[in-house]
Amino acid sequence: MTDFFRIAWLVMRKDLTIEVRSREILYTTLFFAMSCVLVFAFSFVKEGRALDDAAAGILWIAIAFSGTLALGRTFERERHAETLRALMMAPADRPAIYLGKLMGVLVLMAVVELIVVPLVGVMFQAPLLAHPFQLLALLATGTLGFAAVGTLFAAMLGRARSRDVLLPVLLYPITVPVIIAGVRGTAALFQAEVDEPMVRTWVAMLVFFDAVFVTLALWTFEPVMTE
């Protein structure tokens, strides 16, 4: 078991070392997510007041779109010199490779959220600090569910010709429950009077999705990666 996590850690550290050096994924996803929020802010904020629930929807759209970009670029790097095949050749449990890639994507998405969430708070006057731990729980569980499926599909599509088109086509329908739970939970949290039982219900739903998606992804990674 320790070897499993050692391999996952190695893969994640390698991905982050490359990203710290190039900053390519971070800058592009951040720019994309911020543009998304700003454009929607011009549409949905009138006379200093945002439309009901708009902040929650925009936040999760920005997370999903920028996450897709990060997933695509992360695996494009592995495709460039076929290094994903080298990882598959390693004498390690292949799910450990998946876990390492997933953790790398999660760190990147977390950094983007660190900038985008306050931006949404400012542009849409969303009460971010009213219930910070519940917001954190929604973001963490929602991001994990989205990235868990995304990492599996991005790895699977690594050798497909139309991978850039296919990734969102496959990813969004399957992660719709995660996005909806994220949006509804965040909307409940951003209301003037917070509906705490509702927030807890959506967080519980996201935890359930995470458990299902991560388990399925770990289980199917080895067979889907064998050509």
Binding site: I18, S22, H80, A81, E82
Partner: peptide
């Protein structure tokens, strides 16, 4: 127990 040198060299250019 297997070592593979493929046509694509399996090296990370950024490292």
């Amino acid at each position: 127990r297997i070592g593979l040198l493929a046509h694509d060299l399996h090296l990370y250019p950024e490292l």
